[in-house]
Simulated assay, not measured.
Amino acid sequence: MRTGWNGAGDAVRLEAVRKDYGNGVAALDGVSLAFGRGEFTAVMGPSGSGKSTFLHCAAGLDRPSAGTVTLDGQNLGELSEARLTKLRRDRVGFVFQAFNLLPALTVEQNVLLPHQLAGRRPDRGLVDQILRRVGLAERRRHLPGQLSGGQQQRVAIARALITDPAVVFADEPTGALDTRTAAEVLALLRESVQASGQTVIMVTHDPVAASYADRVVFLADGRIAGELPRPTADAVAERMTHLGAWAAVGA
């Protein structure tokens, strides 16, 4: 398990991260983990295992109660809210199950939104490239309501990639999609790792989705419960079935 790290080779590092919500139970309990640049990692665990809290802390959306999170070489605990917001805007991409597209904006306008919020002039050539990459060059003038669910998620991926982020965080990105469409979306995430060197960290409950990753990290009761390199869907499903007992032995 990559609980150690080598500095420049890692896009995200967590060291002894703990997150308490005041109810006497730690959502994260001493998590130390590293994510290499150009690596696709799936994070899995049963309900209540801490997956969402992990993603929020790793992405700088929430601050841990203890421990350190380093993202693209920056210690998030040392950043003001303004600098943290800028780091997320410039160096992090997000893809969610609900797509989170603005319904009154076209595909192209939704993709350009991060540039607009940052006050940057749009790079039309880059937009063209990204839209071709996600297979939506002919749909750039369409509104989200005119697209299928899979097409909307591809718009969300294009929006996440437009700033050339160091890390893309994906939270159940295929949860609302059928099997065939989900495979297309996962292939896009896989391609962003291979072609552009992005680090992708994906929270998922689906063993098939997890099989697209380079490795799977398992959480149980807020702790790391092991990992699986070069995963297959069957191996992931088997590990999830026995995760509770496996985690107890590991502890």
Rank of each mutant, 00 (worst) to 15 (best):
residue 213 A to Q: 00
residue 206 D to T: 09
residue 226 G to H: 13
residue 228 L to H: 09
residue 187 A to R: 08
residue 229 P to G: 07
residue 193 V to E: 00
residue 226 G to D: 08
residue 183 A to K: 01
residue 191 E to V: 03
residue 194 Q to V: 09
residue 206 D to F: 04
residue 202 M to F: 03
residue 202 M to Y: 06
residue 222 G to S: 12
residue 199 T to I: 12
residue 203 V to P: 13
residue 210 A to T: 14
residue 196 S to Y: 12
residue 184 E to D: 15
residue 224 I to V: 08
residue 213 A to F: 01
residue 228 L to D: 14
residue 229 P to T: 01
residue 229 P to W: 00
residue 221 D to V: 11
residue 193 V to P: 07
residue 192 S to H: 07
residue 205 H to S: 02
residue 201 I to H: 05
residue 210 A to S: 08
residue 216 V to I: 10
residue 204 T to G: 05
residue 200 V to Q: 14
residue 196 S to Q: 15
residue 215 R to K: 11
residue 217 V to D: 03
residue 215 R to L: 05
residue 184 E to N: 15
residue 214 D to W: 07
residue 224 I to N: 11
residue 211 S to D: 07
residue 187 A to T: 15
residue 223 R to W: 07
residue 212 Y to G: 01
residue 200 V to D: 14
residue 205 H to Y: 05
residue 225 A to P: 14
residue 199 T to K: 08
residue 199 T to C: 12
residue 175 G to A: 10
residue 210 A to C: 03
residue 182 A to M: 05
residue 227 E to S: 14
residue 225 A to G: 10
residue 191 E to R: 06
residue 221 D to N: 14
residue 223 R to S: 15
residue 187 A to G: 15
residue 195 A to G: 14
residue 204 T to H: 03
residue 179 T to R: 02
residue 197 G to F: 13
residue 198 Q to T: 11
residue 228 L to V: 14
residue 176 A to Y: 06
residue 214 D to L: 03
residue 224 I to M: 10
residue 209 A to S: 02
residue 178 D to R: 05
residue 229 P to V: 00
residue 193 V to T: 04
residue 217 V to K: 09
residue 222 G to Q: 11
residue 199 T to L: 07
residue 226 G to I: 09
residue 179 T to S: 09
residue 198 Q to Y: 10
residue 222 G to V: 11
residue 227 E to H: 11
residue 204 T to V: 14
residue 186 L to W: 00
residue 188 L to M: 11
residue 223 R to D: 04
residue 207 P to A: 10
residue 207 P to N: 13
residue 190 R to C: 06
residue 213 A to E: 00
residue 225 A to E: 04
residue 194 Q to R: 10
residue 228 L to I: 08
residue 228 L to C: 13
residue 198 Q to N: 15
residue 184 E to H: 14
residue 215 R to M: 06
residue 197 G to N: 13
residue 221 D to Y: 08
residue 213 A to N: 03
residue 226 G to N: 09
residue 204 T to C: 06
residue 183 A to V: 02
residue 190 R to P: 02
residue 221 D to M: 12
residue 200 V to R: 15
residue 215 R to W: 05
residue 186 L to G: 12
residue 178 D to N: 02
residue 196 S to I: 14
residue 223 R to P: 03
residue 175 G to F: 02
residue 211 S to I: 03
residue 189 L to H: 12
residue 205 H to R: 04
residue 215 R to Y: 12
residue 200 V to S: 15
residue 199 T to Q: 08
residue 192 S to G: 03
residue 218 F to I: 03
residue 190 R to W: 01
residue 209 A to P: 01
residue 185 V to W: 05
residue 229 P to E: 00
residue 185 V to F: 08
residue 189 L to W: 09
residue 202 M to H: 15
residue 223 R to Q: 13
residue 177 L to M: 09
